[in-house]
C-alpha cells in the first residue's frame, strides 16, 4: 500500500495531530468544518481515518461513551511517530519550496 498521503488524508492527519485525545469520527468532521468552512460527511471521515490507520499514520483505541452517543463508545485516534515524521517531512519540503519562492511584488 502506498504510503503517500492524499490532500484530504493529510488534512485529516493534521487535524488528528492537533486534536490530542479528542479525535474521533464526529469531532474530526466538526473540526474540519470549523477550520475550513466546508462540510465533510462522517462516513468520508471514517473512510479516511481507517485508511490512515491501515497505513500506520494513526492508531486507535476505544474510548468513553456519552449519553448523546446513545451509550456507544468513541474510537479515539492518535497520531503515530510515523505519522508525525511524515507530516514533518511534507512540511519541511514545502517550506523549502516556499523559501525558494522568488520575492514577487507584494502587490500582486
Amino acid at each position: 500500500m502506498s504510503k503517500n498521503l492524499g490532500t484530504l488524508e493529510e488534512t485529516i492527519l493534521l487535524l488528528v495531530a492537533v486534536m490530542v485525545d479528542a479525535a474521533y469520527g464526529y469531532s474530526v468532521s466538526e473540526e474540519y468544518f470549523n477550520h475550513f468552512g466546508q462540510r465533510i460527511s462522517i462516513s468520508a471521515v471514517h473512510t479516511v481515518l481507517n485508511r490512515l490507520e491501515r497505513k500506520g499514520f494513526i492508531r486507535s483505541e476505544m474510548g468513553g461513551a456519552t449519553n448523546i452517543r446513545g451509550g456507544r463508545r468513541k474510537r479515539i485516534f492518535r497520531i503515530t511517530n510515523l505519522g508525525l515524521t511524515t507530516l514533518e517531512n511534507i512540511q519541511r519540503n514545502r517550506m523549502k519550496l516556499w523559501d525558494m519562492m522568488p520575492k514577487l511584488n507584494s502587490n500582486i
Binding site: Y24, G25, Y26, S29, E30, I42, H46, M62, A65, T66, I68, R69, G70, R72, R73, K74, R75
Partner: peptide
Amino acid sequence: RIDEIQGDLYEAHYH
C-alpha cells in the same frame, strides 16, 4: 464497528 459509527451518528444527530 457499531460503537463508533452509531455513536458518531447519534452525536451528529444530537447537534
